[in-house]
Design a protein around this nucleic acid. Structure first.
Length: 270
DNA sequence: ATGTCAGCCGGAGGCTGA
């Protein structure tokens, strides 16, 4: 059995004790981190190595930043999402894990742009919603190429997409938000239709299961959340999906991230 | 209506992003 997780930690420095606690108690094999908010040389690699993980990092100053932690090795690391050489935001890293312990699996940690506020001014080249939609087009092209070479793959991260009204506490409140707009949901659906499986949804059909709760307005206490963090499995891995879930425990602790870990467990034998 | 948190610069607290 192999346990993978994705977690937007909202600063790896601010969250280090919380992350180490969770690794110790949950014992995931592979963790995909987003919003580490530091440069590569400031990533606390020693602490994760001491906990038994190999580390691959793609960071930048202040914003964004993604990383992979693995107990089963990391090989063939590559950073950046293809399709725009001018994009300097650190939002994508992929690697092969588990190379020398059975089935090698390609994993990616991605941090899809938020996209708010929408249109201010509407056709400005750095408008955030335009950047989000263009990034999603690049992701979909890249994801298609990942499927075509047949390597079992998990694409995990903070997608900043609310896929359906079941994935937010009050759909009316989100209708004009970049996370829920039809353009956003259509592109995410197009990704799924390539053949990716939302592993959580494949194992839990209930509405109102969330991975993010805003810090403001008592959102956590009222369970005013949204589900925007996903582990998408390619077809051969979806067939091996054992269980999946959201561990909301870290969100309730002191000095929590606004996101909580989403996990899935794969049956790799047979 | 407001409510939060983190990083940056710079040496306080205002700004940005989420």
């Amino acid at each position: 059995m192999l346990t993978l997780a994705t977690w937007n930690v909202n600063s790896v420095k601010a969250r280090l004790p919380a992350i180490l606690d969770w690794l110790q108690s949950f014992q995931p094999d592979v963790v995909l981190l987003q919003e580490i908010k530091c440069m590569d040389n400031a990533f606390p690699a020693f602490d994760f190595e001491a906990a038994g993980y190999k580390v691959a990092v793609h960071g930048q100053k202040t914003y964004n930043g993604v990383a992979i932690l693995s107990k089963v090795g990391i090989d063939e690391v590559s950073i950046g999402l293809p399709g725009d050489e001018t994009d300097e935001q650190a939002r994508y890293i992929q690697a092969i894990v588990g190379k020398d312990s059975g089935l090698p699996i390609r994993v990616a940690a991605l941090y899809l742009p938020n996209g708010n506020p929408i249109g201010s001014p509407p056709h400005e080249p750095h408008e955030k919603f335009t950047y989000k939609l263009a990034w999603m087009d690049r992701l979909n092209r890249h994801a298609q190429s990942l499927l075509s070479d047949g390597i079992p793959t998990v694409l995990g991260g903070d997608y900043n997409v609310i896929p359906t009204p079941d994935d937010c506490y009050d759909p009316e409140r989100w209708v004009n938000d970049a996370l829920f707009r039809p353009e956003t949901r259509n592109k995410f659906n197009a990704l799924l239709h390539q053949g990716w499986t939302d592993t959580f949804r494949a194992r839990d059909a209930r509405a109102g299961q969330y991975s993010f709760w805003d810090y403001q307005a008592g959102a956590w206490q009222k369970n005013n959340g949204i589900r925007i963090d996903f582990l998408l499995a390619s077809p051969s891995l979806a067939d091996k999906l054992h269980t999946a879930g959201i561990d909301s425990e870290p969100r309730g602790k002191e000095k929590a991230s606004d996101h909580t870990p989403v996990w899935c467990r794969l049956r790799l034998s047979d």
